[in-house]
Design a protein around this nucleic acid. Structure first.
Lengths: 225, 225
DNA sequence: TAGATTGTTAATCGATTAACAATC
DNA sequence: TAGATTGTTAATCGATTAACAATC
């Protein structure tokens, strides 16, 4: 899937009146997500307002760019004060149309799976882990983060019953492709891949691979040079 | 720290002769890191060559842009064939000047800490976990991923002895700021923050916050709309 | 009021893309 | 050879930035 094709330059001309354009450009959506990340952290720390300058320091996005991005959707800030954290979180969620709840299934009940199931990193953003799968028969039936570990054989049934839209893969690289095939066959179209494997999927399935080490390399480049 | 200030547009004019410019622009460095991520996965899957078109599908970066980025540093590809995976990994590491080994310290021996310590996600890119700390006295002295869990009181000493350049925070949000202060006092200047807390650090310290849920929101936006 | 910060403009710079010759 | 894919150019579009009036 070429995500770039979804961007529509015409939306840039949208009027300044709280209306959400049909589709955001790729860059705007990425930056809004980044603001949302920092705002969520700030909210957790009890912050009530935040300035574009502070947001800039945490996101490494230019403060003018931030004000420009936000002012395209409405006048959210207060001159001399900054932006209300709660209200800006709500506005960005509205713009990104991701204010709702989404059910996700977790694959792999190892250390990483347990860490994800027991943390609130996904729950904070409306993602509910409603099922955990593992291929190890010794783990099936045990409890992880309030959920009973299920057999992958039940995958199709669970996807339908629970309305699962996202699969999170926290399994070894060698098991990932086979599992991805089953996940796709069961009808899930968004895969979050922590396995380190390069997955082959149909064009209508979106795979997001997270790579903390590469992000670290990138950070290191600017620190060392 | 305003990372953007480090970018130097002048490097764009660098000659096509295998020389690494003094500093890459922010965008080029980010994209090269992304290529490296996919190439590392491809290598793990046994792939020998990869085309700019395939790299484009996996990175969502336009294939012309990829060829353009790479050809700025040398002629790495073979027409009609593509790029050799091993050789391109080596070239990008050379360009990013991150081919060496770096010692990192892990904070928090919970599920996430154990997942990081026992995986090869950091080791694959030359990051060696040489120390694990926890504040829970019951965990201190136990073994996690081949390392003995240490007392945070020993932090300064260990940073000096082991030459630690990066701290990875896998601790609860409430413990993060206090720990970050100690880490900075001990002389570490790069912090990878998984805690969900918004950290206040001096300007010469780089904090990288990972937020899988926000990345997922971003992916979802383009899928749903 | 005085200081701070937003919202907005205008200018510049870099990213993106299509197209195609070169060549493996 | 024929097909595929790189390396490179030229044109366009969006991102970035400085600057500042508006205003809380």
């Amino acid at each position: 899937m070429k995500i770039g094709e979804l961007a529509d330059p015409a939306v840039e001309a949208v009027a300044n009146d709280d209306v959400v354009p049909e589709r955001l450009s790729l860059g705007v959506a990425a930056r809004l997500s980044r603001y949302l990340q920092v705002l969520t952290q700030a909210k957790k720390m009890g912050r009530e307002t935040i300035s574009s300058q502070e947001l800039s320091e945490y996101t490494h996005v230019n403060s003018t760019q931030i004000r420009r991005d936000l002012s395209g959707f409405g006048k959210f800030g207060k001159r001399g004060v900054g932006y209300n954290v709660d209200s800006l979180v709500a506005q960005i969620r509205r713009i990104l149309q991701t204010g709702g709840q989404h059910n996700i299934a977790l694959f792999g009940a190892g250390h990483l799976g347990k860490a994800i199931a027991s943390s609130d990193i996904f729950a904070d953003h409306g993602f509910n882990v409603v099922a955990i799968f593992d291929s190890d028969t010794r783990k099936i039936g045990s409890k992880v983060g309030g959920q009973t570990v299920r057999d992958v054989a039940d995958l199709s049934q669970v996807v339908d019953d629970e309305g699962i839209v996202v699969a999170v893969l926290a399994v070894p690289a060698l098991a990932a492709q086979g599992l991805a095939d089953e996940i796709v066959a069961a009808g899930v179209r968004i895969v979050f891949n922590y396995s380190g494997a390069l997955l082959q999927v149909p064009h209508d399935v979106a795979v997001h691979a997270s790579s903390p080490a590469v992000e670290l390399l990138h950070a290191l480049y600017f620190y060392l040079s």
